[in-house]
């Protein structure tokens, strides 16, 4: 499993649960807390949409990373390789990891990326 437990369905389910609580008046409608939660829900729905759009690219980048640095197994194998020191300061690995991080951040918080990285 990669970061997917915090994306897509899990995130939307949390947003829907928060919306249901708001609809039920918890916290009280119109309160600053309710407004804060409503804004959080709206942000989450936008984020989930970007997750959905970027999921194939992120999955493909993970597969490429695993193929090149994880003996074709999984991300855990990549981690074992990194910890072993076999790729200390390795340009190719850094580029691959950086690309994956950029893709993830395009979904999570695109404004945190350098302008040319926003896709």
């Amino acid at each position: 499993m990669s970061g997917d437990a915090l994306t897509g369905a899990s995130l939307l389910a949390a947003a829907e649960a928060a919306q249901a609580a708001l609809d039920a008046g918890t916290p009280p409608t119109g309160s600053s807390e309710a407004r804060f939660i409503a804004a959080m829900i709206a942000r989450t729905r936008e984020l989930a949409k970007r997750d959905q759009a970027l999921a194939p690219d992120i999955a493909a980048q993970e597969v490429a990373l695993v193929a090149q640095f994880g003996k074709g197994r999984d991300l855990s194998a990549v981690i074992v390789a990194i910890r072993s020191g076999a790729f200390d300061g390795d340009n190719t690995l850094h580029e691959a990891l950086y690309h994956l991080a950029v893709l993830r951040l395009r979904a999570t918080k695109p404004e945190a990326l350098a302008p040319k990285e926003r896709g």
């Binding site: 970061g3 915090l6 994306t7 899990s10 995130l11 949390a14 947003a15 649960a17 928060a18 939660i37 959080m40 829900i41 942000r43 989450t44 984020l47 300061g89 390795d90 340009n91 850094h94 990891l97 950086y98 991080a101 950029v102 993830r104 951040l105 979904a107 999570t108 918080k109 945190a112 990326l113």
Partner: peptide
């Protein structure tokens, strides 16, 4: 918790920053 789920996603920006701070 939605708040906890979103906190988890903060790791994405931090991972990006870490990779920028530790280039080859």
């Amino acid at each position: 918790s939605l708040a906890l789920a979103l906190t988890g996603r903060i790791a994405d920006e931090l991972e990006y920053d870490v990779l920028r701070m530790t280039p080859p």
